[in-house]
Every structure is written in structure tokens, then in C-alpha cells.
Design a protein around this nucleic acid. Structure first.
Lengths: 198, 198
DNA sequence: GTCTATAGGCTGATAGAC
DNA sequence: GTCTATCAGCCTATAGAC
């Protein structure tokens, strides 16, 4: 009995995910340009020709991962807004979530893809367009409303919210990089970084 | 009258510097692999063939720049140690120096080369060897003595010095990246980041 | 010292067998 | 769906003219 159409679509989707996951692993450590299609194929245990059966090009794969990373970083800020408690409590919750997600699993790899995408000139045009489009909201700007809210009820120091947001996000990005360089580096407590708001 | 030998050496050294500077400009934005020798040549206004008259390979140029960046980041920590004042004052002085140097000139480019070198697998073997050699002392470890000193006279909070050093250095690295992404981003005051030590 | 021309190798992408 | 073989283009590095 042949597989139904729905099953075929599902299988195809599964295989695409396998390839995307493999690509994420190699892209995040080697960057887009230095990664060969054959590296991705090897990581996913299939032939390089097959990668092109599922994706049109290396650039398409990279672009998909960048969009996924952007979505993921947008979601955590959204979730923080929806959290119970004061603005400062929401920020602390978010910080704990991020530090935890950076210390386990592959969330950190999405983070690094995002850093690559936004710091390198050698990325597909579509990535550049996406990052400067309305569709993409930078994490720094997503943080500002939360910080301003905290300042209004005097939970957070009266500094330029933009500078605070940049400081906060710098720490997060920098920690992701540190973690990649040195996998077993200890994870600082959320309280340490929260001090910049006090 | 022909140039003396000394003048020739000097001229050669100057031209090498021009090429190194051009390479730093393009490497820092595109990464080593995505940078073509012809990109460097174009940036330095000379032919790609001539680059090979002064350097053996693209990898040699990149490796030289990594070593230069490592030296530069080591120097700032050394200078901080030699500064007058308490440990906390030394740290603040260093933070101001770094934030200033990241907001002007090309110091930031060396910083970014260092980040690339230590986060990417796609770097020359010699860079990997250098970064894991005794010769190279990571900034995080350079900071620990200063932090411990501050803790002994109770200027600095009694937290794991390693976690404090990681937090501090994460912020610095992250800010360098932010600055690259968004050149006109405002520079936070040193006081903001110094709060993590309080 | 500086350039242009080119060799040689690698890789992204495709074609076609199974 | 999956693989292997291959094409075409690009890039590093060299050779050789000026």
C-alpha cells in the first residue's frame, strides 16, 4: 500500500528539518561562506546532491535559519511582556530564560546565526533586506518599552533606556559568544546582569 | 643615488602595513573565508599579485592580525594593572579606555578579528594553535587577579570572580558587536557596566 | 616593485542513473 | 527519493613581462 499524500508531505518535512538542523550545526561554527554543502550533507548523513532536492541553494538554507532565529528571539521578548509581575520581574524572568537556554541545547546556535547575520557583510541579499525590513524588530528596541515601564514605577534607574537596552543586550550577545568559545564556562546568575538596572 | 638598504626595508614595512590595514578592514566585516585576496588588494589600491609579493598567503595575513589583536587586548589589561588607585578604580579606568577605543578608530576592528578567531572553526591551524598556547592569555583570566584584589578590600561583591570576569568580558565583546551592527549606537557610560561589581 | 595572464584546484549546482 | 558523475565558475597562488 503506498503512502498517502499527507504522509509524503510529512516525511518531506522531516527530512527538511534534518538538513536544517545539520546546517545550523555547521553554519554556527564555520559561518555561511566557509560551510560547504558537502559539510551539511555529511553532518546530515546524506549525499550533497540530495540537499538540492530539498533546498534551492546554500543561501536559502542560511536565510531560513536567520528568520527562524529572529522569530525565536522575538518570541522570548513577547513572552516576557505577557509575564505576571512588575517590569523588573519580567526582565529578570527573561534573563533567566535566556541564560538557561544558552547553557543547554541548540538555542545558542540560533543566537550565533543571528550574530553572524547581523555582523557579516558576506550574507545573502535577502538576509540583509530582512534585517533592515519592518518585519524584523531588533531585540534592543523590543526591550525599551519594558525598561521605560520599569523606570516609571522607579524600579529601574533613570538612565537613557536605549543605553540600558544596549548594555543588557551586549551582555547577552557577548555571553553567547563566550559560551561558544568555552563550552563549560560557568553561567553567571541573572542577578549579576540585573544590577545594571538598579 | 639609489636608496639605502635601510630605506628599502622601511618602505617595504610601510607597504606591508598598508596591506595589513586594508586586510583588517575587509576581514572584520566579511570574515576570513569570505574575503578574497582581490578584496584586500582593491581596498589597498594595488593589484592582487602584489599582495603575494609581501605576504605568503591570505592565512598568513589573518594570523598576523589575530596575534596583533591578542597583543593589543593583553596590553590594555597590563596597563590597567599598572594604573594608580584601587582595583575597582583600575577596572573603571580600563572600561573607559575600552569603551572609548571601541567608539573611535580601528581598535574595534582588531576586537572583531579576535572574536572571529575564537568563535570560528574556519580559521588557519596556526591561529587555533596560538589561541590554545601558553603564549596567549585570555582576557577573562587576565581580569581575575584584579577582581580578586577588589574583593579582598571589599570594594567588589563577593561572587565567584570567574563569573564576574565572564560577565564583564561578555558585555565588552557584545558591545563591540553591537557597535559594528549599528555604528552610531550610543556608548553606555562605564558606570553602567561597573555596577555588576557592586 | 608592480602589473597582467593564467594555471590548478575547489565547490556550488545540475543531470541522469537507479 | 537518493546517489554519483560532471559541468561551470571562481579564487588562490604563481609566472613572467615591464
Amino acid at each position: 500500500m503506498p503512502r498517502t499524500e499527507a504522509q509524503n508531505i510529512k516525511l518531506r518535512e522531516l527530512r527538511r528539518e534534518e538538513i536544517l538542523q545539520a546546517a545550523l550545526n555547521v553554519f554556527s561554527r564555520r559561518g555561511m561562506v566557509a560551510t560547504k554543502i558537502s559539510d551539511i550533507a555529511k553532518e546530515a548523513n546524506l549525499s550533497h546532491g540530495l540537499v538540492y532536492h530539498y533546498f534551492q541553494s546554500k543561501e536559502e538554507i542560511f536565510t531560513l535559519l536567520v528568520k527562524r532565529a529572529a522569530e525565536s528571539s522575538g518570541q522570548i521578548i513577547e513572552k516576557a511582556h505577557l509575564q505576571e509581575g512588575t517590569a523588573l520581574e519580567k526582565l529578570k524572568w527573561m534573563t533567566e530564560q535566556i541564560l538557561y537556554s544558552l547553557s543547554e541545547g541548540q538555542q545558542i546556535l540560533l543566537f550565533l546565526i543571528m550574530i553572524q547575520a547581523s555582523t557579516s557583510d558576506a550574507v545573502p541579499e535577502e538576509v540583509k533586506r530582512f534585517l533592515s525590513s519592518e518585519e524584523f524588530k531588533s531585540p534592543v528596541h523590543g526591550l525599551i518599552p519594558l525598561i521605560s515601564e520599569g523606570q516609571q514605577c522607579n524600579e529601574i534607574v533613570q538612565e537613557d533606556p536605549l543605553k540600558l537596552a544596549i548594555s543588557y543586550y551586549s551582555f547577552i550577545q557577548g555571553f553567547a559568544i563566550n559560551k561558544l568559545q568555552w563550552t563549560q564556562c560557568p553561567v553567571p546568575e541573572a542577578e549579576i546582569i540585573m544590577k545594571i538596572f538598579k
